[in-house]
Design a protein around this nucleic acid. Structure first.
Lengths: 356, 356
DNA sequence: CTGTTAGCGCATTCAC
DNA sequence: GTGAATGCGCTAACAG
């Protein structure tokens, strides 16, 4: 009776012609066991290569597995097993920054026995602060052996698996982290604009809940101070690291009576948005306005004009996070890894014409 | 007794000072129940908003949930429940093409109640043909409600959940699919080169097991035939859609005694690789060699010189896949969705100088 | 060598 | 209203 409930279509998968697109109920280990005429445990042993199984039995089971197209459910297996050999990359949202990191993580995991699982936690939950705790709680301890958290917004409580944070909320506090020298990077960007003769330099802020955003603003202020340029609060607007907010912030700045001649945006996404808004105002880049971004996502060099920006070595950061994670999975201790920032000068900045 | 085994650290999570970076064991529904002084079932009902629970009890439970930072395990929940509200994007590997699609999928799922899970199946398993069946089998029916398969290499047997394939193996055969008009796109690319005066046009093939690769080669041949240019087998090399293979293929072509004046690469990744190899041979792009790619990933416009390519609307393709999937999840029937291809002329192509 | 037993963390009947 | 059973698909001990 319960057998029937488990497998509504008792005939082997290979037998029934797929004329309808109906869902075939999943092939479970019990289907295999029943078809092969052995117990569930035996199948499990064969699958997992445990020894103590007769050659003949093993072969027969494997044949059935092949015939039925059986593959063990990650979920069920992970519930019993210690390690799943899956690394989770937890992001708030799949945007270019996170995707570049993901590529780095994935590439450097290619030589290991780990698979990669990326999870966007706040897609359906809105911009809930604390998405990382939610995601971690849902996946850790069961599905993934370790996690890479991309721009977590809160300090993480001790998790149930090893965790490495990239561009964390609290700077280099807490557990293992990977980040870029945001302060120095922001200085580079601002000093570049100053060197080009700009003095009315605006800043489009990043997300208020991220340490990186705070540091980038600080670097901007420091550079201004060093150059003896007074700080003007009117030249700061909220960009939030994302297009919609950046669009509003950029509009605020560009509609100022005494418009800035340059904008340092807290990341590339908002810099690109600034360029877009400038276009709607009839402003040409870089003739009427210089723009600098941060991150150097592929879109930065792809846009027109190409964006001057501060490069974070995203691919290498992902790889570094993996190294730290593997160390922790091996029982070792992992620390903090800071990457240098690099100014990449492209087409969106130019010297301020003498006729200010 | 069993209580002790389940929770090695019986004290509430909030009680023990996190001085060590030791793993805290996951907070389970039982911890919540015990702390709140109710049964596990009661907690479950409160969490899932079932009615029939005293207001006071409900409030108390919710407080404990908040305090302990409890979140139901996706794994455990998905094993009992019907729907997990998670959509899986299954890819062989996280490369730019797949990542752009992922972004499209994710963005168009933002307004729904679904979360997104991306899984790279062949990371640890090598280039195993059939990764999609393996991944699907591991995740479907348990962890995800539906799946978007990116460039599956085999025709899928009926799966246990709704599935949409993007750029499928078998063209538009089988279940729901989304693809681009590869044949027309390849013609556009080749005709563009022909219009520029090129006649020795090479083709760097895509992955042999993909229909898209076959169609792109066919489009190339068709365009040559229409222009009355004889097909030369020596001008075809394997690119495999990936950098390492493309590198070898490009070298073969560029080291030919009678070198081609233009290369149509089956995708952007191999086109970019061709540009790279050309540089090592001292060839300038586009002066000494014109190169056209396919896909229009962000890297295509980012490279130097920017790449002339055939654009696939990747973001929209991801969104289209989601629409089909949601239809199927709603019990409806979904069909095939074909997107137009568009030639984007950039800096990597130019007219062949008269002095051939 | 193989089958039986006991859960993993959770949701779902059913009794109480 | 609440709580003890039960099972999801699977694996690890332990029996036979």
């Amino acid at each position: 009776m319960t057998e029937l409930r488990t497998t509504p279509t008792p005939e082997p998968a290979s037998a029934h012609p797929e004329r309808s697109v109906r869902r075939a109920s999943r092939v479970t280990i019990r289907d295999v066991a029943r078809t092969a005429g052995v117990s569930v445990a035996t199948v499990s042993k064969v699958i997992n290569g445990r020894d103590g199984i007769a050659e003949a039995t093993s072969a027969r089971v494997l044949r059935v597995v092949e015939d039925l197209g059986y593959e063990s459910s990650l979920v069920a297996a992970s519930m019993r097993r210690r390690r799943t050999h899956v690394i989770g990359v937890l992001v708030a949202e799949f945007e270019p920054f996170a995707l570049q990191l993901l590529q780095g993580v994935s590439d450097s995991l290619a030589d290991t026995s780990y698979d990669v699982l990326a999870y966007a936690g706040s897609v359906s939950a809105g911009d809930h602060v604390g998405w990382e705790r939610r995601s971690l709680s849902r996946l850790a301890g069961t599905l993934i052996d370790g996690a890479v958290l991309v721009t977590p917004t809160v300090a993480l409580p001790s998790a149930s698996v090893p965790v490495v944070a990239i561009d964390p909320h609290t700077g280099s506090a807490g557990p293992a982290t990977v980040d870029t020298d945001n302060l120095a990077g922001a200085r580079l960007a601002t000093e570049h604009l100053i060197a080009l003769g700009h003095r009315r330099i605006a800043h489009l802020r990043g997300r208020g809940d991220l340490e990186s955003a705070r540091l980038r603003e600080q670097g901007y202020r420091d550079a201004l101070a060093d150059a003896g340029i007074p700080f003007d609060p009117a030249l700061i607007a909220e960009g939030g690291y994302r297009a919609p907010e950046a669009s509003r912030g950029a509009a605020t700045l560009l509609d100022l009576a005494d418009r800035p001649t340059a904008v340092f945006a807290a990341n590339d996404l908002s810099a690109i948005e600034t360029v877009r808004v400038a276009a709607t105002r009839g402003l040409r880049i870089p003739d009427d306005l210089s723009v600098v971004g941060f991150d150097d996502i592929p879109e930065a060099s792809a846009c027109e004009p190409s964006l001057t920006t501060v490069r974070q070595p995203l691919h290498r950061m992902g790889a570094a996070a993996v190294q730290l994670l593997l160390t922790m999975l091996d029982g070792g201790e992992a620390g903090h890894h800071r990457m240098p920032a690099e100014l990449i000068v492209r087409g969106s900045t130019r010297p301020l014409p003498e006729h200010t």
